[in-house]
């Protein structure tokens, strides 16, 4: 009885396993395995779209970007997408190479597949905030694709990479302008700051006068002798207050402890990707 039950559950487990594996086998048959090129540097130009000089120049810019911001940005050109969409290929390539730092996932790939006529900016989890999909889309539509259409692949790649570098370095405001919401808040802040700087001193002057008058009237009530002393302590207080106030305005720049020690070999920092970015075709 027990044996029969055990046998039954075992055979059930085997059937379940077979059922589980069957679709896998089918999957393996229908699509060819993904082929990933080797990560040979910050520029992996498998489709040979760039000249040596361009490669060197762009590679230097990408290295600069990493030392400045820790963001890893790799440019890839491919001869084939192994029969996948560029979206499906892109994030898996990024994960395989581990582009971006492990803790911040700030990796970006610019992928060009000239045979499929597809281009994609693949953005790691951590870089999605600084390089949103809409910005990637605009860079592809307005900078890269017009050049690609004119058969200027190298020009498109270099110009597109330049814009991405600009955005990743904290610039590229022209790409972020479009949505109206983004502009309202800075305007409001600027108005407030202007008001603060113009009316702030007046308010302070009024306050100081009021305090001085009050301290004088008080000291006259308490006695003529202490008047001078009391006034001085008050001004001392004001002085020390204003000096500490001005020092708090200086922004403390956080120095990043991260440094790229090896200039020769390049490897991914272990960042991951979740499908952020944008694609285009020409």
């Amino acid at each position: 009885m027990r044996f029969a039950a055990a046998g039954k559950s075992l055979s059930r487990a085997l059937i379940a396993l077979a059922l589980l594996l069957a679709p896998l086998a089918a999957f393996a048959q229908t699509s060819e395995p993904l082929q990933f090129p080797e990560l040979t540097g910050r520029i992996v130009d498998r489709a040979s779209l760039l000249s040596d000089a361009q490669r060197k120049e762009l590679s230097r810019k990408l290295e600069d970007l990493e030392t400045k911001t820790t963001a890893q940005f790799v440019v890839v050109t491919l001869t084939s997408l192994s029969g996948r969409t560029i979206e499906e290929y892109g994030y898996q390539l990024g994960r395989r190479w581990g582009i971006g730092q492990k803790t911040t996932n700030n990796g970006v790939l610019l992928i060009v597949a000239p045979n499929e006529r597809k281009v994609r900016i693949e953005v790691g989890y951590g870089a999605e905030g600084i390089l949103p999909d809409a910005v990637s889309s605009l860079i592809i539509q307005r900078v890269i694709i017009p050049k690609f259409r004119a058969n200027d692949y190298a020009g498109g790649i270099v110009a597109g990479a330049d814009e991405i570098i600009k955005v990743l370095s904290g610039g590229g405001e022209e790409w972020k302008r479009p949505p109206q919401q983004g502009q309202q808040i800075p305007d409001w802040v600027i108005v407030l700051l202007v008001l603060l700087f113009t009316f702030g001193p007046i308010f302070l002057a009024v306050l100081i006068t009021w305090l001085t008058v009050r301290s004088i009237t008080r000291s006259t009530i308490h006695g003529q002798k202490q008047k001078g002393k009391k006034q001085q302590t008050f001004w001392e207080r004001v002085n020390s207050g204003s000096s500490s106030g001005s020092s708090s305005w200086s922004s403390s720049s956080s120095s990043s402890s991260w440094s790229s020690s090896d200039s020769g070999g390049f490897s991914g920092g272990g960042g991951s990707f979740g499908g952020g970015g944008s694609s285009g075709s020409w």
Binding site: A134, L138, P178, F273, G274, G276, G277, S278
Partner: peptide, 18 residues
Amino acid sequence: NFLTLQAQLEGTENRIAV
């Protein structure tokens, strides 16, 4: 506005797929 939204929607669809 529409172009921005469209890019965001496409990106989100792709993230859903991933």
